[in-house]
Nucleic acid binder design. Sequence first.
DNA 1: ATTTTCTCCTGCATGC
DNA 2: TGCATGCAGGAGAAAA
Length: 273
Amino acid sequence: MPELPEVETTRRGIAPLLEGKRIKTAIVRQSKLRWPVPRGLARTLSGRKIESVSRRGKYLLINTGNGHLILHLGMSGSLRVIPADTPASPHDHVDIVLQDGQCLRLRDPRRFGAVLWTTNEPQRHKLLASLGPEPLADDGDFSGEYLFTRSRGRSRQVRDFIMDSHIVVGVGNIYANEALFRAGIDPRRAAGRISRTRYDRLAAAIREILTAAIRVGGTTLRDFSDARGDPGYFQQTLMVYGREGEACKVCGATVRRVVSGNRSVFFCGHCQR
DNA sequence: ATTTTCTCCTGCATGC
DNA sequence: TGCATGCAGGAGAAAA
């Protein structure tokens, strides 16, 4: 499931293969994604040159100089750069065909992903305008102090709080659970009832977990693969996620799972308070 | 204003 | 073996 490390891994994989290249056309085999793929995408993109590939949260931004393609991988999306004549599989929904014979191919079985186009500054786009800070940026916007301030008066569980992209981007269920374990915080605790000191630990834990995951190419549980089709390896490092009933790697207590908001929360009742 | 629930979708695991 | 059921979850939209 693409969270920030998987999206960043994808970005690093595709960027050098796309930047400086000119787009020949686009092929849309399935336009029903999270939102409809814009009509006339082929005409819109034809002839444009890709200047850069960047990321904002879990969104990938392909800059063509006078317009941006906004991509989201949703739950099951993956991107590869492959020869344009490679036969398409059933879930290969969109190709961005390059003039050099390669294409950027989006595969997304569950179709929660998105392909959008904007001619405005992407940061102004409705979906990006109200996003929280980047946890790995060094601009100082993301910190324990920030989380502490934003959480005052909030009753929701801290796990849900840090998964809210309007609070901080890029943290999905896997890394939320892992960061909370690393910080020693019970994921069910109310966000507004956690001290400044503990939020310092949590902010640091989020950065460390995301950085470590990027280093090994992200987490592959079912279907994530990078731009070359290779899986990530962070799943070998997971301390609590998906480990219900197994022994905590730190204290040996049994890792618990409870369902909250239709999502599994994994934690060690001994290490996390 | 904040929080919770619903919704989109398919593949895979489970159970009768 | 086959079918029904449930679960996974990013995140906007709607409901509470």
